[in-house]
Every structure is written in structure tokens, then in C-alpha cells.
Simulated assay, not measured.
Amino acid sequence: MTRTRTILLLTLALAATPALAQQEISKVNGSVTAEAGQTYADLETVNGSIRIADGAIAEDASTVNGSINAGEKARVESLETVNGSIRVGKDVQVRSDIETVNGSIFTDRGTTVGGNVSTVNGAIGLVATQLTGSIETVTGDITVGVGSHVKGGLKVEKPRGVNFSLKPKRDPRIIIGPNAVVEGPLVFEREVVLYVHTSAKIGPVTGATAKPYSTDTAPTE
């Protein structure tokens, strides 16, 4: 009886003990690294890059001046930078958004994104990626690559403000690749060049005329 009571009390004590807090990394200057296979809270820096190694788990990863790289099978809440690119490896899970202002975004095969993917000045490329939200940019090219599925729409916004007073050198290229799907509307508030593979499926298009192609890659201009 005494032994049983001791085991019961120990079990209750362990259950009442709070779990060890996940490690949060926050810096002003310097890069941040989430080690492979480890679990973290938020990863933050102002002037520096963020590297999330293969299989690492983290909450929000954000920087102002720096790139973000998420390795294969990493799991994160969101990825955000202002001046820097974001590269996501294979089989990564991003529960919310991927955002940058000045920089490109690339997601590799098997990646799932629960929110939106957006840039202002930077290209966006998806390869065999499942995106629950939408894609948005102002001046960047967009490639919804082979086998990708975008449940939301796709939007290229009209340039606004003094930074966009001059006409850009060329119109953005929008490519919907082989066996890709964009379920929502494709809205273009500025001139673009839109290529859609004959095997792709898209929603209604506003502001552009789709040019079909059937080769492995879209035509070069």
C-alpha cells in the first residue's frame, strides 16, 4: 500500500511540474541558428540571418536585415524578413505565412504552407508545394512550379508611392507550371506576362491574358 501511494504521489508531482520552457533566441546584431532536431520558441534578430537546420522545430522566425533558410523537414510557425531572401527546403511545414519585402522566396518539394506567401520586390517560386493561402507581390516574378497547389488566389498589386514612380525595366513574368493548380482568382493590377501550362488548372483571370504553353519550361522572351 505504501509503495503504491508513493508511486501515485510521484506521478501527480510530475504531472504538476511545468514543462521546460522552449529556448527563445533574440539578438540585435548577429545570426541565429536552430540546431538540427531541436525545439525552439521564437527566433529573432535585427541585423543577421536565420538558419533553421534539418528537422528543427520553431515558432516565428523573423529578421529585418538578413536571409532565412529552413532546412529539410523543419517545422515553423512563420518566416518573415524585410531585407533578405527566404529559402525553404524539402518537406518543410510552415503553419502560417512566409513574407519578405525586398528579397525572393523559394519553397522546395513537399513543403506545406498554411498561410500566404508574399513579397514586394522579389521573385516567388514554388515547387511541388501545397499553399493554403494566396500569393502576392508588386514587382516580383512568380512561378507556381510543377505539381504545386495554391488554394487561394494570386495577385500582383499596382505599384504605389514614390519608390514606384519610375516605370520598371520590364513587366513581371507569371508562370503557372505543369500540373500546377491555382484555385482562386488571378488578379493583376499592373501589366504582366502570364504563361499557363496546358496541364495546369487556374481560376478566373483579371487584368491579363494567359499565354498557353506545353513545353517543360515557359518560353523565354
Rank of each mutant, 00 (worst) to 15 (best):
M1N: 14
R3T: 13
T4G: 07
R5F: 11
T6Y: 09
I7L: 09
L14H: 14
Q22H: 13
Q23W: 05
E24V: 08
I25F: 11
S26W: 06
V28S: 10
V32K: 06
A34G: 01
A34D: 04
E35W: 09
E35C: 11
A36P: 15
T39P: 00
V46Q: 01
V46L: 01
N47W: 11
G48E: 12
I50H: 01
R51G: 11
A53R: 08
D54N: 13
A58H: 02
A61H: 00
S62M: 07
S67L: 05
V76T: 13
L79A: 09
E80W: 00
T81D: 08
T81F: 06
K90Y: 06
D91K: 15
V92Q: 04
V92E: 05
S96H: 15
E99K: 14
T107P: 02
T111Y: 04
T111L: 03
G115P: 12
G115K: 07
N116S: 12
T119K: 11
V120A: 03
G122M: 00
A123P: 05
A128Q: 14
I135Y: 00
I135H: 03
T137V: 02
T139V: 06
T139I: 03
T139R: 00
G140F: 02
T143G: 05
T143S: 15
G145T: 05
G147F: 07
G147N: 09
S148C: 03
H149K: 14
L154H: 03
K155C: 10
K158C: 00
V162H: 10
P168E: 07
K169I: 05
I175D: 00
G177F: 01
A180E: 00
E191V: 07
V196T: 03
T198M: 12
S199A: 10
A200C: 02
K201A: 11
A208Q: 09
A210W: 08
E221V: 09
